[in-house]
Structures are given as structure tokens and as C-alpha cells.
Design a protein around this nucleic acid. Sequence first.
DNA 1: AGGAAGATCTACT
DNA 2: GTAGATCTTCCTA
Length: 192
Amino acid sequence: MGILQRNFYSRATPSVAKDLLGKILIHETKEGLTSGKIVETEAYLGEHDPASRAYRGRRTKISDLMWGLPGRAFIYMVHGNWLLNIVTERKGKAGAVLIRAVEPLYGINLMRRRRRVKQMKALASGPGKLTQALGITQHDQGVDVTSPSSHLRIEEYGEEEFKVGKSHRVGVTRDLRRKLRFFILGNEFVSK
DNA sequence: AGGAAGATCTACT
DNA sequence: GTAGATCTTCCTA
């Protein structure tokens, strides 16, 4: 129980992606606290992954984070949506896990207000939806999710049995042969 | 300047 | 269930 330590993130990216399933993502703002159980993730590898921001070692102001300290938030905008990733691998090696969907736990009324949708299922069942629901923006760029004092952090949950499903990543123009999307089988908050 | 980007919503068949 | 419009930043020309 408790918060996930840095050594959790300082491992091979696909393992981190799979092991983040069932953990709790928490975000605190002035409006209140919201949290959800992670039910879907994707692994983005380093230099050899054409879908990765680190492809061919391409460094920009924000992709630089991917080579940095594991366990920090890495956020970027795609089609008008903020997407939340967590940096993986040891410092100096690029990698990140995209959080694609969470099952709402606390602050559901606040999420409803932010998202303006009726269906619970539509609250956070997608990478752009969950950042809206939890109020995550570029303002959280680089935040250390392993720190108990962070307003954005990830904690362990109780023991829980579930089966992990795998597939190719969603929406990427050039994917790898390997299946790098992970999700909790049968969970209704998975994006598709 | 202009286009690309791990997406989402709407309005239909 | 699917196609199409629209979303907003950042990066490259």
C-alpha cells in the first residue's frame, strides 16, 4: 500500500505500463480532489519507436523529459486534448507510459461538472477525457508523481484480481509489431 | 506560416 | 457504428 516509489518507474516501459493497471491516479486542485483507478495504458519506447516523441533521439523542450528522472509527469497536447504520460526507464534512457483510461473513484460530481456528460462511462474512458475529468493540464508538466506532497500522484490499491488484455496501440500512424497497449479485461471504463 | 499529433464530439445512416 | 469537423499546441520550413 501507499505511494509508488521511483524504482517502480525505473524499469522496462512495457512492464511499467502493465503494472500501472489497477493503481490509483490522484489529482488535487483548488476545486477539490479527484481520483480514478487506472484501467488502460500504453507503452512508448525510446529512439526506435516511430510513435514515440523520442523517436530518433529527437529532443524538444518537452520530449527532453523522456530522458529524465522516472516517475515524473510528461504532458502534451494532441488534437486539442492534454494527454498524461509518466516517464519510465532509468535517467538517460527514454521511455514513457500513456495513461489512457481510469475508472472514476472520488470526486465524481466534480468530474461531471468538468466534463458535462451524463454517462459515467464517458467521464474518463479515454486519454483526453481523463485529463479533462481530473483537471490535468500542462500546468502539471514535470510533476513528480512519487512524492506524497505532489498534487498529482499515483498510489497502490488493495489486492485485486484481474486479467490483463493486450492489443496494438490506438491511433498511432506507425505502430511497432509488439503489442504495447494494456487494459483490464472486462472493465467497462476501458476506451474501446 | 502551416501542418502534424497517442482524440473527441456530433450527426447522421 | 461510422465519417467528418474541430480541437490547440508545438515543431519545422
